[in-house]
Each structure stands twice: as structure tokens, then as C-alpha cells.
């Protein structure tokens, strides 16, 4: 029996009309052949849509993250296509899973190895607060060792929640002032974690 062939014989053109998200143009003035805007806004736009996440997955939240990266949820849609597995290349540290007290110096080391500007996302109840592991051996939230930008609740959070967290990170990246990392407040924050 002939197998019905459904693909590739008469390829249908994909309907891309109104089907692709395009980043909005930043505010600015434009005219014939030129466009002028803030440098800050351009940099924010570029950074926001090309985040390199560093996955630090220690338990079940890491499995949800794998689903987030896989085609069904597809984090690549938001410009976070490329996972870096060295902290020196990455902008976004995603800590997913229980961090024991013995692991805490490792998280901090990884954070220190990242270059500024860097963002941190705590995914799941354990990374946010220790979760159900209220015990002597578990760090009660990674914000005890590194500053955290976005907390994603859930045990474990669904991929949609992780994507939402990434979008919140994108908001921060987009709106961050270029001078933020030089402000006394930011330095005081890092100092409170013992980071120079």
C-alpha cells in the first residue's frame, strides 16, 4: 500500500505574516536614512535579546529547565539560544535545585568567575529559600551567598514559570542603566556578600 506522503512534495510557504515577534524600536528620533537614540537603550536591547545562560542544575528543577530548552517550550525564542558551560562567557546564572552548604562556595566561585554585567536567577523553592530542606546541611536560599535578581517559585516550577523568570530578567537587562554597576549602592550590595 502506498504510504501517503504529506511532506515536502508541495511545500507550503509558512505564513510569517504577524507571526514573528520583532523587538520594538527604542524611543528616538528618525528621519530619512538616520535614527538617533540613547546608547543605553541600544545596548539594553542587544543584551536583552542575546542572553547567554549558565545552567547550574543540581536536581529536579534542572529537569524542568531541560524541558524549557527543548523544542516544545524553546527558550531559544527569547534569544537565549546558546547555553554557556563556562561562567566566563555567560551573563545569566540560573541556579536550579537544592544547594547544600558544601556546594555554596562553588556557587559563589562560579558567580565570581562571571564577568560584569551578570544576572542571577534562583529557580525553584530550594534555590530561593531552601524549600522543604529545612536542615543543617542545606543552604537556606542562594541569596545567602550571591545576590539574586529574579526568584522563580515552584517545586519544581513548570517551564512556563522558568520562561516567565527569563522574561523578568530580560526586563531588568533592558532597563538597566549602563552606570548601574558603578553605583555606590551596587558596590555596597556586593560588599555585603564579601565580593569586591
Amino acid at each position: 500500500m502506498a504510504r501517503p506522503v504529506r511532506f515536502n512534495i508541495h511545500p507550503k510557504k509558512a505564513d510569517i505574516h504577524d507571526n514573528i515577534a520583532i523587538a520594538d524600536m527604542p524611543e528616538g528620533s528618525q528621519g530619512e536614512g538616520y535614527f538617533a537614540t540613547n546608547f543605553e537603550k541600544i545596548v539594553g536591547l542587544a543584551r536583552k535579546n542575546s542572553l547567554w545562560p549558565l545552567p547550574f542544575a543540581t536536581s529536579c528543577c534542572g529537569i524542568e529547565f531541560m524541558a524549557t530548552m527543548a523544542p516544545h517550550y524553546d527558550l531559544a525564542r527569547f534569544g537565549a539560544e546558546r547555553l554557556g558551560f563556562t561562567p566566563r562567557q555567560c551573563d545569566l546564572l540560573m541556579v536550579m535545585g537544592t544547594i547544600s552548604k558544601k556546594m555554596a562556595p562553588v556557587v559563589k566561585q562560579v558567580y565570581l568567575q562571571m564577568a560584569e554585567p551578570r544576572w542571577v536567577m534562583a529557580v525553584g523553592a530550594c534555590a530561593c529559600s531552601g524549600g522543604i530542606f529545612d536542615t543543617y546541611s542545606v543552604l537556606q536560599g542562594i541569596d545567602q551567598v550571591v545576590p539574586v535578581d529574579v526568584y522563580v517559585p515552584g517545586c519544581p516550577p513548570r517551564p512556563e514559570a522558568i520562561i516567565d523568570g527569563v522574561l523578568r530578567i530580560q526586563d531588568l537587562v533592558h532597563n538597566e542603566s549602563l552606570r548601574r554597576r558603578n553605583t555606590p549602592e551596587y558596590k555596597a550590595l556586593l560588599n555585603s556578600y564579601g565580593i569586591q
Binding site: T135, Y136, Q140
Partner: peptide, 14 residues
Amino acid sequence: FPQRKEYPVEDQTR
């Protein structure tokens, strides 16, 4: 030695 019974299992820093 955390498994000795005089020490509580919960983290005391919370």
C-alpha cells in the same frame, strides 16, 4: 556531629 540527638535537624539560621 549532626545526627546526635541533642542537635535539632532544622537549620538554626532561619
